[in-house]
Design a protein around this nucleic acid. Structure first.
Lengths: 321, 321
DNA sequence: GTGAAAGCGCTAACAT
DNA sequence: ATGTTAGCGCTTTCAC
């Protein structure tokens, strides 16, 4: 493997001049620039990134920190984040924290040792204090202190869901989902938007929630169906929950959407093969991914950034009238 | 940030002794070991991994190279791989190659510059020659030259699929999927197993394939349904294809499984919420992930390894009788 | 504009 | 069993 020394020698210049050409930094005359470039080509020189990372104390690696990549929404988001990072010269390290606080802390320690450039994260724990001010970080769908974040318009999405259910003639509405006692999640704003819209409208509604994470979603949903037989319109926290409710309703011969309308949240593409069965509030996943990367890079460069909230849209499937 | 020098000074020992304690290498007396350990604790010392990577020319990072993490089977596999790597002290860099050969090549160059320890990969291209012998690598579901790989028993799975379809009374069978002209994919062995079983049995069958990647799967499947109306048993290349065929059949009022039985391949969990609708040949994803990591680490340590093929099982859903 | 040289923090000979 | 020291390849002052 050729080193910068070899390049300098072959080009007949000093190491720092070679470095300047390689990094396009500082002043180099056109003629020496060409000499160095020639040497680089001849030797097939490529910089040793571990040496660079060591010297600059910056690995040009961004960590994506999430509970599990094995989740439709996250894996779609991860795809776009990786793509955007790559286009900006960063690599992506993937960390499945499994929501376990011990594992999250040990990951953070590892990330510091490896001098990652920054973190894009979703955490269910209050570990942010460990990182903030010591590393650039941008959160997804979490609003903690002054840490910048990117989310979809969860509140607005909740309002839209209410409106759609009402406009399509539902009389007895319910929100189903989970709540968190520790971290204030953006997800809960979906509920808030739904509730506020219902209150403004003066319509009654039911809130059926369990503490996050819900251990047995199937049991949770079955209980809901048997307990609230008169509900004819449901807004579920996310598509996975909505989809399972849809399946359970079919099993119990409840006609969807005639007797029960269902709206999910996410609009994840994995289920496109199902011919868009589910009505849902769709998050602009790709845009969010790019936006996360953009914000993080600004933070890395030291700029101050403000949260970004992306608009959502209702996508009609077959679970609403 | 405390360095190893600080530790050595505080402990009153030489740098290399401190290094020995930190790395548990070489001989160190019990008493000095304790002194060093104390110093480490007092200073809150953690090794600078970029320096280590630089000196050893090994970043302890493994790259997971796949077409797209945004795919149910891959994201599940990635989850288990990351978990196993983490348990072995490795980090995981995620590279979405999008199957594009230019992007794959530029990733490989990047990985070399970053001194990754090894690669776990799925590639649709013949880039393996670029890596082989220059870096430890293990492939998923690809059999290229002498490169070690891990796969499920695709051939056996194909045989099982045939047997199930036949045993449940189907008369006119078909295999649907894709074929590749460049790389010999393990996936095609599913077809081979199916064909061989049919031939042994003496039963006629149809092979309906298109070159990979199939641009418009919906059109592809619709064409199949209209062209082969008498087929009553289908083995599809993967679950996504099987699932869409199922949906299209329903749309066209073809009764599944009465008039048409469908078996997929993968057994991915994302669709569990659908209440196991699809009959499928299930791959042991978790075991495969662990197995990939195990093989790669053996390769990194210089051992010779042989391919590992994991058994599959038929999981009955509602798309077979 | 260009080159010499220091030094990033660590590992691994090598000497003792 | 322990300490000294030479780099690893690069970036970055600092002189010229």
């Amino acid at each position: 493997m050729a080193t910068i020394k070899d390049v300098a020698k072959l080009a007949g210049v000093g190491i720092s001049t070679a470095s300047r050409v390689i990094n396009k930094s500082g002043y180099v005359s056109e003629s020496t620039k060409i000499k160095v470039q020639d040497a680089i080509n001849k030797l097939g020189y490529v910089p040793n990134e571990t040496a660079r990372a060591f010297v600059t104390q910056d690995s040009k690696i961004v960590a994506l920190f999430l509970p599990s990549i094995h989740h439709a929404f996250f894996s779609e988001l991860a795809y776009y984040i990786e793509d955007a990072l790559d286009k900006n010269g960063y690599k992506m390290l993937l960390c499945n924290s499994t929501g376990n606080i011990q594992k999250e802390l040990s990951y953070i320690s590892m990330l510091k040792q490896n001098k990652v450039s920054g973190i894009i994260g979703i955490s269910y724990n209050e570990i942010e204090s460990e990182i903030h001010n010591s590393m650039p970080i941008v959160l997804v769908d979490r609003h903690i202190g002054t840490i910048p974040y990117v989310s979809s318009d969860n509140y607005g999405g909740g309002k839209i869901a209410f409106q759609v259910l009402k406009d399509t003639g539902c009389q007895h509405l319910a929100y189903i989902g989970s709540y968190s006692n520790s971290v204030l999640t953006e997800v809960e704003k979906r509920q808030k938007g739904f509730e506020d819209a219902a209150k403004e409208d003066g319509m009654d509604y039911i809130i059926y929630t369990e503490e996050d994470p819900i251990k047995d979603q199937t049991a949770f949903l079955k209980r809901f169906l048997s307990q609230y037989k008169n509900v004819d319109g449901v807004f579920a926290e996310n598509d996975l929950m909505a989809l399972e409710l849809f399946e359970l309703a079919k099993e119990q011969n409840i006609k969807v959407p005639e007797e029960l309308s269902i709206i999910g949240y996410d609009g994840i593409k994995v289920y496109e093969v199902l011919k868009s069965k589910l009505s849902s509030i769709r998050q602009p996943v790709e845009v969010m991914g790019r936006s996360l990367v953009e914000l993080l890079i600004k933070r890395i460069k030291g700029s101050y950034v403000t949260p970004v909230i992306h608009p959502v849209e209702f996508v009609k499937g077959e679970t609403t009238r």
